[in-house]
Amino acid sequence: MQVDPRGPRFGAAVTTLVLAIVLVTGAVWLLALQAIVFAFGAYGHPPYGLVFKKFLKPRLGPPKELEDARPPRFAQGVGMAFAIVALIGFATGIVPLALGATAAALLAAFLNAAFGVCLGCDMYLLIRRLQPGRIS
């Protein structure tokens, strides 16, 4: 499947903003909401992407080119993992874990929004490298 690359980029910008608010205010409910957003994204229905499609895309016109939907989808899954770890940190009162995991997710979202770098996508090969290789 192909997507307009500006959709995930917009989503990353909103995610950056949301996670920044979570860090400053410690609003756990907002982090939980973001975790749900990540989950929808990982299943191919990014809520922020929907906002982009409905309100922004009609104003911006068609994209120059489309891109594969799998990398941003995978990255949403990585984001969800970090959000869950952060929620566990908040729930158990382990503050460094909560702030650290939130910051990690924020870093990835910020890099994507500001520079178009997909940290979550790069994680894929790094994880696979650690697993026993199948050689074809």
Partner: peptide, 23 residues
């Protein structure tokens, strides 16, 4: 307060990493 510091450090690190990665 801690959260604010973490946010500032993360964004600064992100900006630096982004420039280096891009370059």
């Amino acid at each position: 307060m801690t959260g604010f510091v973490v946010l500032a450090v993360t964004l600064a690190a992100g900006a630096l990493a982004g420039f280096l990665l891009k370059r």
